[in-house]
Design a protein around this nucleic acid. Structure first.
Lengths: 346, 346
DNA sequence: CTGTTAGCGCCTTCAT
DNA sequence: ATGAAGGCGCTAACAG
């Protein structure tokens, strides 16, 4: 048997289908007793409105397409959680497309052509589904200009950006400045930094924060303390080796992610250098494992939830033509644990 | 201006809308030259079919509703990835609902009432959206009977089950049997096990695997070596303390998840007991951090991707009325790292 | 306050 | 091989 529709309700309640629609949406005043009859009929027949029909009519699906470059990457779930948070409050649904980039092309992000087709298919799929807007979640922050043609649909990027579209980022410079401030407050002045890949905006901005802190706090600047890593554990290991071999090694290392911290710890351990007693270490990301390593890692937590929340909030605003002031950029948060020690004042 | 529709194509190609539909779907033979005209028109107008209208007509959305109890829990992303894998191959789309249980109710899963409403809302939302079927991803495996009324829509559970519905699990007993076999092959015979919460099916089944291995390999059975944990790090720590205080302590510990291993390691470290030289340790889950701890943890990897894949595959089969033999239960895989040492043979 | 009706974009039966 | 037309379930003029 067919699913019960507005028509069945109308028949049962002895009203027109228009009236049913009115009580359903509250778009018109309806006499209490007729409303009652309708409500009863709805209950008895266990009626569920058909959003598909509604969407067709209204040309509006209340659905946001979310394209994740890879849901298994650590930033994705928490960003999606933020999207859901806002979505729940505003009756927005989420159509999720997972590009599965890690499994399909590995880390070869430089070659846009290798995944252009996946992205284009995703967009086309979402457009056919008539989503009201699109959110794109990158695996790491980079310029995505020209990857996607959203055909006029509102789109916002997070963990990525283009020249023309809205994108949500967090304040990288502030984050590394804050990390540095923490280290400096603990008495450190020879502070090394291990960066991520330098083609990445976050790496550069965090380096800016580092420079600014050095300047503001009038620390001696030593280029030997600046090391270019690649986000991977091995680079943390190798570069820490170099740092510790310096004639005058640093007393603290700021690593631009927690994964490289694993390498830092290992390098220190192999040289019999105790963390944090002889070497303080800070990371970025507040990955789950930061709390499991020994010592537990002091790190900067990323505002992933907020980024997701803001991404969909911005999208919602442009979809509805709301004029709103720009949202304030989310900031990282210092998570103090055990990998930073105060330097004895001399 | 209105979006271009099938009607515009028909006008431009000087055919009827029916013909356009035919070439779009290949449902009828169309003379090559008319087909050509249609295809050209589609290109020129950059036409994208409207799946909403199609769905309304066909009463089929090619969309699967996925209800995740919490996408930020470690099992969810990889399961979703498996769902996407199959979905991509069969043109199935994913409408994702995130119950956000961790943030909303914490770990209070025993009290179904506290989240029944969230689940009901999710289902109702998906039914209105006319999904063709539903997948429910739990946070941990338990009986969910009576939580959800899917109103006749096909539904399959993973990381959870009900009395009546399809559910996808992996082979827990086999997994712990295999883990035990590995330990035994390395020469261990006094092997302790730290379980998860005992209200959990996986805990019980893994214990079965433990017993079966003990029996099959004719190891002495010592109830003192069986400890009931609660999946959390602290219980791993505390119970390892108890185990190491035994008059005759175990030479190996099998922990039912990697998180408790963190506690195991810590307890051993505090007593100056070297892992794996003096104590071998194995975990479950192959969490990312298992590779970051020192020593790197040997563990059983969960077939999460396969579970997601099988979940949607089963769903797809019931939706399409395919008669198929039941899928074979996915199995865990041993990941050998550095936390297990061979016992010197005496 | 309530009913009638056109039409959203598409598929498909029926006719030619 | 192609076209005409009805209808999926719903909303919103418009009419009364």
């Amino acid at each position: 048997m067919r699913k019960t529709s507005i028509k069945d309700i109308a028949a049962k309640a002895k009203v027109s289908i228009a009236t049913v629609s009115y009580v359903l949406n509250g778009t018109r005043n309806v006499r209490p007793d007729t409303r009652h009859r309708v409500v009863e009929a709805i209950k008895e027949l266990n009626y569920k409105p058909n959003d598909i029909a509604k969407s067709l009519k209204l040309n509006r699906t209340n659905t946001i397409g979310v394209i994740a470059e890879d849901v298994t990457v650590f930033n994705a779930p928490e960003i999606i959680d933020g999207i859901n948070d806002f979505g729940d409050r505003h009756d927005l649904h989420i159509l999720l497309v997972n590009l599965r980039l890690n499994k399909r092309i590995g880390r070869n992000f430089a070659d846009i052509e290798s995944y252009r087709k996946y992205a284009a298919d995703a967009v086309s799929e979402l457009l056919s589904k008539q989503v009201d807007g699109i959110i794109y979640i990158g695996v790491h922050t980079r310029d995505l200009t020209g990857l996607i043609d959203a055909d006029g649909k509102p789109i916002v990027y997070t963990y990525g950006y283009t020249r023309d579209d809205i994108s949500i980022q967090y304040n990288d410079e502030q984050a590394s400045y804050q990390a540095m401030s923490h280290l400096i407050a603990k008495g450190h002045s020879r502070i090394a930094i291990i960066s991520g890949l330098m083609d990445s905006i976050p790496s550069r901005q965090r380096l800016n924060g580092y420079y600014r802190a050095i300047t503001d706090f009038q620390l001696p600047f030593d280029p030997l303390l600046i090391k270019m890593g690649d986000w991977e554990r091995e680079s943390g290991f190798r570069l820490t080796g170099e740092l510790l071999s310096l004639p005058e090694p640093p007393t603290a290392i700021l690593s631009m992610n927690d994964v490289m911290v694993v390498g830092v710890l290992q390098a220190a351990d192999e040289r019999g250098i105790k963390v944090p007693e002889q070497l303080s270490v800070m990371g970025f990301d507040n990955r789950e494992f930061s709390d499991y390593l020994r010592p537990r890692i002091t790190t900067m937590e990323l505002p992933l939830h907020d980024m997701g929340y803001q991404a969909i909030e911005s999208l919602y605003n442009v979809i509805n033509g709301n004029k709103t002031e720009p949202l304030i950029m989310p900031e990282c948060r210092l998570i103090e644990r055990d990998s930073v020690a105060a330097l004895p004042t001399m």
